[in-house]
Design a protein around this nucleic acid. Structure first.
Length: 175
DNA sequence: CGCAAGATTGGC
DNA sequence: CCAATCTTGCGT
């Protein structure tokens, strides 16, 4: 395994710790043609298990969400609006059903654009970050500051979930 | 089996 | 402001 790859136990913690700590780390993608690109993670959102009504797992285990119930470090992707692949990392212990949505990379703003840039598809569903040969996370020595605000596009969840400041935005200028 | 809605984006 | 585009989950 390449030096710097983040070990699995990084993800086996509370999603509210993992989501901000992913900021400023490298998301590494090895494409079909062998090209490897590294992107700094600039924005994340936390979805905290079955009680969080904004979290897909709040509806229980379904064919689409079952991967969220796995142990942390697993990749959860899903197609939204028939167009965009959303990239998430499962966090916590098996059954916690929490995940981090990757909302932005340096120079790439918005989760739909992230999926497009990384050329995601359903084959990433269930991938394990610590083993994967096409997608993983690497350490960086970049120190980031970040701000928080409510999550985007989850009005249907209602209070208190819609107001939780679980969107984490890095200020990469202050790195 | 039908159908409404979706953790979004880009264009008019 | 709304269309794109298709999967999913739920109701009938």
């Amino acid at each position: 395994m390449e030096p710097g790859r983040i070990p699995n136990n990084f993800f086996i913690r509370d999603v509210l710790e993992v989501a901000p700590e992913l900021l400023g780390k490298y998301l590494v993608r090895k494409f079909e043609n062998g090209t490897i690109k590294k992107y700094l993670i600039s924005e994340t959102e936390a979805y905290k298990g079955r009680q969080d009504l904004a979290c897909h797992a709040s509806k229980g285990k379904t064919p689409r969400t079952e991967i969220m119930f796995q142990c942390g470090g697993t990749v959860y992707v899903y197609l939204i609006y028939g167009i965009y692949w959303m990239l998430n990392f499962v966090t916590g212990r098996e059954g916690d059903a929490s995940a981090v949505l990757i909302r932005g990379l340096e120079g790439i703003s918005g989760p739909g654009r992230v999926g497009k840039e990384l050329q995601l598809n359903k084959s990433f569903y269930g991938e394990t970050l610590v083993n994967s040969d096409k997608l993983w996370i690497e350490e960086s020595n970049i120190k980031t500051r970040f701000t928080t605000c409510p999550r985007v596009g989850i009005e249907y969840a209602g209070e208190p979930w819609v107001s939780k400041p679980w969107r984490f935005i890095a200020d990469l200028k202050l790195r």
